[in-house]
């Protein structure tokens, strides 16, 4: 009865891209090779972008493809290539034996919890408090108006966040070429000394073992 009210193209788009998203997600968590997992992640992200289009969020769909599929997954693949494909994540024994059953149980619990929440009155918010998503094609301009007026302060905060993230990534990935000579000369006189320096990631001598 409910199916009759849904137009066929919408149903086909939802079923196909939803199935592709689920298959991709299952591939991410089951495939051994991290490269294959990343490619399955692309499939899921792209399917979700299609679902965004289906839900009239065209701008977010474009950004999803560009940022996620275009930038983030490429970054993942770069790191995988940089570090080499690691096959050690096979079915080897976990350090905690009951980790895997507990994982499935907790996932089922989360699913149940979300379902219970969804059965009750989840959508209690008022309609169109920020701005209406009126008409077709007006969504992008509405989104832009909201981002640059109501949400201007968070928008500026995200620019600061991006700068901080870039600086953090540069600091993290910098090789400690100019730091190691200092440490070599420092180490004999203060063996257990400078705790603050040793606390920083990448300059801990013990980790190298």
């Amino acid at each position: 009865m409910m199916l009759a009210t849904i137009t066929t193209p919408d149903l086909i788009v939802f079923v196909v891209s939803g199935a592709a998203a689920l298959v991709g997600a299952l591939g991410v968590i089951t495939l051994r090779n991290p490269v294959h997992a990343a490619l399955m992640l692309v499939m899921t992200l792209f399917s979700i972008a299609v679902l965004f289009v289906e839900e009239q969020a065209q701008f977010l769909a474009a950004v999803q493809v560009m940022v996620y599929a275009g930038a983030i997954v490429v970054l993942f693949l770069f790191v995988i290539m940089l570090l080499g494909v690691d096959h050690s994540d096979s079915g080897a024994r976990d350090a905690i034996r009951w980790q895997r059953p507990v994982a499935f149980v907790s996932a089922v619990l989360i699913l149940l919890e979300v379902s219970v929440l969804a059965r009750t009155r989840w959508a209690t918010g008022a309609h169109s408090t920020t701005a209406k998503l009126t008409g077709s094609g007006a969504h992008v301009s509405e989104l832009a108006r909201s981002v640059f007026t109501t949400y201007l302060a968070p928008f500026e905060a995200t620019s600061a966040l991006l700068i901080i993230a870039v600086v953090g990534a540069v600091v993290l990935s910098r090789t400690s070429r100019n730091r190691s000579p200092v440490r070599e000369t420092e180490r004999p006189e203060s063996v257990g000394g400078s705790g603050a320096e040793e606390a920083t990631l990448g300059s801990t001598p013990e980790v190298r073992s």
Binding site: V63, V67, Y68, H127, S128, T130, A131, S146, T150, T158
Partner: peptide, 19 residues
């Protein structure tokens, strides 16, 4: 809910995810 705030939230989630 016919409200644009959800899409704005997704916009910010995308930025934070990138960072």
């Amino acid at each position: 809910l016919n409200d644009v705030a959800g899409q704005v939230a997704v916009f910010f989630v995308l930025v934070v995810a990138a960072a």
